[in-house]
Simulated assay, not measured.
Amino acid sequence: MGASLAGVQTLTTLPGLYYTMSDTAERYCPNCRETREFVRTARTRMNLGTKVKWRCPECGFRIVNIENAVDTGVSA
């Protein structure tokens, strides 16, 4: 069973690692030109932090986010 972390339901995968149960996030999609509900397609722990890949189900546009280090969904 998952643990509760600040009121968020979590799933324990390895000792000390907790992942939230949320598989969607609202993000701006540049292909659709509007805010869409992106689906999480992958999550990996790296040296820089946790890498999360998101995909727009409407057009297939993908975003990669590595905690506060990298976010391909943000315009330069």
Rank of each mutant, 00 (worst) to 15 (best):
S22I: 02
R45S: 15
N47T: 15
L14N: 11
T35F: 10
R45G: 15
L17R: 03
Y28M: 05
G49S: 10
T41S: 05
C32N: 12
E37W: 00
E37K: 00
N47H: 15
K51L: 12
Y28V: 04
Y18L: 12
W54V: 00
K51D: 08
C32Y: 08
F38N: 03
K53W: 09
A25D: 07
L14R: 12
E34Y: 10
T20G: 09
E34R: 14
T12V: 15
R40W: 01
Y18M: 13
Y19P: 10
L14P: 07
T44G: 10
G16D: 14
C56R: 05
C29D: 06
M46Y: 08
M21R: 09
T24L: 00
D23I: 06
T44Q: 14
S22F: 03
C56W: 02
T41K: 05
R27E: 05
S22P: 06
R36V: 08
N31Y: 07
K53V: 11
R40T: 03
T20H: 05
K53P: 05
R45K: 15
R55M: 06
T24I: 06
R55W: 02
T44H: 14
T35C: 09
L14T: 11
K53S: 13
R27C: 04
N31G: 08
R36T: 08
T24A: 04
Y28I: 03
R27N: 10
T41F: 01
T13G: 13
N47E: 15
C32F: 07
C32M: 09
A42N: 08
S22W: 02
G49K: 10
D23C: 11
F38G: 01
N31I: 09
L17A: 08
G16E: 13
E26C: 08
T13C: 13
S22T: 04
C56E: 04
T12I: 14
A25F: 03
R36D: 06
C29G: 09
T20D: 07
R43T: 00
R36Q: 13
E34F: 10
N31D: 12
P15A: 11
M21E: 09
V52C: 05
L48P: 09
F38H: 03
P57A: 05
N31R: 14
S22A: 10
K51G: 13
V52H: 03
V39G: 01
T12A: 15
D23N: 12
K53A: 11
A25V: 09
G16Y: 09
K51C: 13
P57K: 01
P57H: 02
A25E: 13
C56H: 06
G16Q: 13
L17S: 06
R27I: 02
T44Y: 08
T41H: 01
P57E: 01
P30S: 15
P57C: 03
R36W: 06
S22H: 08
R40I: 01
L17Y: 04
V39P: 02
C29W: 01
V52P: 03
P57F: 01
T41I: 05
R43G: 00
K51F: 07
